[in-house]
């Protein structure tokens, strides 16, 4: 049997994130109150870190970009806010999985 590579693991994780679930699967995979609170906690931490990193390192650069090249600014702005939502949520879910597997 073919051994699962890291890429296969990532692919399976990505599919799991957007795959439509049946009602039974939703109930099965629904996090408990504690898990949900932990997920939110991790997510809040990541969001705050992300914002302060952007504020510390990119604030002046973004202002210059806004003044000089609106097209690049628009693309960077979209990527920053989409990244803050989507990437951080994926990282939070992945971290939660790691924590869960360690505690099980």
């Amino acid at each position: 049997m073919k051994k699962k590579t890291a890429w296969d693991e990532i692919k399976a994780f990505a599919i799991e994130l957007v795959k439509k679930k049946t009602k039974a699967q939703q109930i099965d995979s629904a996090p408990s109150g504690k898990q949900f609170a932990l997920e939110i906690g991790i997510y809040v931490g990541l969001l705050l870190c992300y914002f302060f990193l952007v504020l510390s390192f990119l604030s002046n650069w973004l202002k210059n970009l806004f003044d000089q090249n609106k097209l690049i600014y628009a693309l960077v702005a979209w990527a920053l806010v989409a990244g803050q939502g989507v990437v951080l949520e994926i990282v939070a879910v992945a971290l939660l999985k790691v924590i869960k597997s360690k505690t099980d």
């Binding site: 997510y43 969001l47 914002f51 952007v54 702005a77 920053l80 806010v81 939502g85």
Partner: peptide, 14 residues
């Protein structure tokens, strides 16, 4: 103003 948007989104995402 993307910096304002990012602060608001920090609360909104949660």
């Amino acid at each position: 103003d993307i910096l304002i948007a990012l602060v608001m989104h920090t609360g909104a995402a949660v």
